[in-house]
């Protein structure tokens, strides 16, 4: 059964839903970037994006009044969005692995120097 969102929670429901997707993408991008650039700030940024995601999931869970098996969605989002960027990153690298391409990694590291 569902418990509809309360009137006062309309805005926060839309807001936290949008933030989940945006924070998920930001985390994925920052995670990928942190792999090709060892700057610690980027890693912290990635974790911060993930923290925003977790907070948004918690807020949506409250606002949308998830109970019982609906909580599976919250758990799936928290776990799924943590691992998905790692998978996406491996995929990006693996599909681009080519004998004569030194990959974007060296290019960016050289730019840094």
């Amino acid at each position: 059964m569902i418990e509809p969102v309360a009137l006062k929670d309309f805005f926060i429901t839309f807001f936290s839903s949008a933030l989940i997707i945006l924070a998920g993408a930001a985390y994925a991008l920052l995670f990928a970037w942190s792999k090709i650039n060892s700057h610690t700030g980027i890693k912290i940024g990635a974790l911060a994006a993930y923290a925003v995601l977790v907070a948004s999931v918690l807020e949506l869970t409250r606002a949308a009044q998830f109970q019982g098996y609906w909580l599976i969605i919250s758990v799936a989002m928290v776990i799924g969005y943590f691992f998905a960027p790692i998978g996406i990153w491996h995929l990006c690298v693996k599909t681009h692995g080519h004998p004569d391409d030194t990959s974007i990694k060296t290019k960016i590291q050289e730019d840094e120097q």
Partner: peptide, 29 residues
């Protein structure tokens, strides 16, 4: 259908997130 629709459509953005990350990665490469 409330549960089925809610659950699976909550997953629908995932390929879209993956695609946008890949697009940026590819453009960078």
């Amino acid at each position: 259908w409330l549960s089925v629709g809610g659950f699976f459509s909550a997953l629908e953005p995932i390929p879209l997130v993956a695609m946008v990350v890949h697009a940026i990665y590819d453009s960078g490469v």
